[in-house]
Design a protein around this nucleic acid. Structure first.
Lengths: 150, 150
DNA sequence: AGTTTTTTGTTGCATTTACAATATATTTAT
DNA sequence: ATAAATATATTGTAAATGCAACAAAAAACT
């Protein structure tokens, strides 16, 4: 059994740690870059959806986004037709910070893929997407309170 | 630019979340399974080393391991020749729980790799190991207080 | 139309996480 | 041998995380 998930965990923790340290100078505290990036790339997205694509608890997302708003990176706007939801948009400040985050991510990405051929890059991307799709089914299942059987 | 790191982040958060939920019935709280597994597989390992291979802050590891000890999953033993270090060993209770964690991990692994050929499994494992090695250099560099240049 | 279920958002609370600072043992350098 | 540097462990503090519980709007069902 090839323990691919252990490798993935190590990589993810290392990179998250690096990003959190590097983004402190942007006044972004732990984890916030995750939400800001998604909101910049999907303006109008709602909190619930952001949590789902990031794969984080709804209440964690709620508070992270609250704080992003408080600190002026994003704003919440009411929807015309649906009183329940609040659409999320980056502010000017958020839009200014986005390319800095992007640059960091691109750099980390290039570090991660050092020594990879173009072909290998395509391959790992394809395989990882498949893993992600496999895994997110179980995540949603378990998060909803269901029990996996094994 | 193929955003492989975003995929990795999603996968890691989803699986960590699943594991944390599933291990609550073992009386293991958030994150503890990480440390217990490493200690079971590397009996005698020290805290500092565990943090390093897991890729987590030293102080976080310190408290997680403290708690594992308090709850009887592991024990710390003084070293004969080095008064500074404390070697970590699973207790009987820890050893009992280990195969349950392992089974869960194996299951998640098989879910993650659903639809993969043997060849693809080998490929992704190999590529991920290379990514991990690339990334851990930067992690150690940044954790030590150095600044990446990009 | 009325009822039930689902979706979305929020808050209380307990816990984990990690930075900063401290202490002590060990190793390296002079 | 002594001093400086490094390795290892710990604690204080602030913040994020996530479960449980709640509320209200929307959607699905009868």
């Amino acid at each position: 059994m090839r323990e691919i998930l252990r490798e993935i965990g190590m990589i993810a923790r290392a990179l998250d740690s690096i990003s959190n340290i590097e983004f402190k100078e942007l006044e972004l505290t732990k984890g916030q870059y995750l939400y800001l990036v998604r909101i910049c790339e999907n303006p109008g997205i709602i909190q619930e959806k952001a949590a789902e694509i990031i794969k984080v608890d709804r209440t964690t997302a709620a508070r992270a986004i609250q704080k992003l708003e408080m600190n002026g990176f994003i704003e919440k706007k009411d929807d015309q037709h649906n009183k329940k939801i609040k659409k999320l948009f980056p502010t000017e400040k958020g839009k200014t910070v986005y390319p800095i985050i992007k640059r960091e991510h691109d750099y980390s990405n290039s570090v991660a893929l050092e020594g990879f051929s173009d072909n290998e890059v395509e391959t790992i991307f394809d395989l990882l997407q498949r893993v992600r799709k496999n895994v997110e089914k179980d995540w949603e299942f378990v998060k909803k309170g269901n029990k996996r059987n094994y």
